[in-house]
């Protein structure tokens, strides 16, 4: 069992007074089989209370409806998360042919539609993809997923400020640089191109482990491996997702998991900053 203290802070300064705004935060760790939250606290400098709702895929969102005028919005979330230790996944014994049949099954496709259909951010033509990114007839999905994970780790080099969260795949492939969102989007694009359901995940990463991307909110993916089920993979760090990953939300792509979505009735522009702290408590 791992136990974390998580603190998320954001400060939004506006150039001129905002009269009305809706701010929707996706920052609260999701309740899942292997992760539980305690002592959740959300505080802000505004009298409005957070209104909680669930996203389409089960994440917990906090919505603030802010009545102005205001020029500053500050928010702090703290929470403790208990996370089960990760074990290497257990496999069902399925032949490659059976695996492919599962993926091709029309009922399976209907069920996983959202994670098979490319979105604007994960769309790519076959001729734009490097040839080694296609699944080989002799490969299991698990082998393929691992191969692509490693491939991406070397194909892209981690560099901040060259892309934005909404940079498209052809641009990323051309740049061969990016951050966790770009690694994840490209991974998703490749998988969906081969008919394998895959979803984008946002969350926190233990800051005590020298992982790439731990300083801010992190992004990784969950891919459907027929012999296992949904499997967490972090292409940025080229590893399986383990107990150091605290999931907040998953969705089709970045847009579904945007940390803060704001709608302003008077848009004056401004500056936004945020910081996260994830510290592991020594468990017994």
């Amino acid at each position: 069992m791992a136990l974390y203290n998580i603190r998320y802070e954001t400060v939004n300064n506006y150039n001129s007074p905002v009269n009305e705004a809706y701010l929707n935060f996706l920052i609260i760790p999701q309740e899942t089989e292997d992760q539980h939250c305690f002592n959740l606290s959300i505080e802000s400098n505004h009298k409005a209370e957070a209104q909680f709702s669930e996203t389409l895929y089960g994440a917990k969102a906090a919505l603030f409806r802010l009545k102005g005028p205001f020029i500053l919005f500050e928010l702090t979330m703290t929470v403790q998360v208990e996370k089960q230790l990760w074990n290497f996944p257990s496999f069902k014994n399925i032949s490659i042919a059976d695996e492919r049949a599962i993926l091709e099954d029309h009922i399976f496709k209907v069920k996983n539609k959202d994670f098979i259909i490319p979105t604007t951010l994960t769309e790519i033509n076959a001729n734009q993809l490097p040839p080694e990114t296609f699944i080989l007839p002799s490969e299991t999905v698990f082998q393929y997923v691992q191969r692509i994970n490693t491939f991406l780790h070397y194909f892209l080099s981690y560099e901040a400020n060259v892309t934005t969260p909404i940079t498209t795949l052809p641009e990323i492939i051309q740049l061969r640089k990016g951050v966790c969102q770009d690694y994840s989007h490209l991974f998703i694009g490749i998988m969906r191109h081969n008919g394998i359901p895959v979803r984008y995940v946002s969350g926190y990463l233990n800051q005590g482990k020298q992982y790439i991307g731990a300083a801010a909110m992190h992004a990784w993916v969950e891919v459907f491996v027929p012999s296992i089920g949904w499997l967490g993979i972090d292409p940025t760090n080229n590893i399986f997702v383990n107990e150091h990953y605290i999931k907040v939300a998953h969705g089709c792509d970045y847009i579904d998991c945007t940390t803060v979505k704001g709608v302003y009735l008077s848009d004056s522009g401004g500056t936004t900053s945020y910081s996260v702290q994830i510290t592991e408590q020594q468990s017994q």
């Binding site: 389409l56 029309h106 009922i107 496709k109 209907v110 539609k113 959202d114 098979i116």
Partner: peptide, 26 residues
């Protein structure tokens, strides 16, 4: 339940590729 797709009356691919499918209605 998408019974009509399960029963293969309407092909799945048709709905998968339909730009007007709204997942918030699922």
């Amino acid at each position: 339940d998408s019974k009509i797709l399960r029963d293969k009356i309407v092909p799945v691919d048709l709905i998968l590729s339909c730009s007007n499918y709204n997942r918030y209605m699922k």
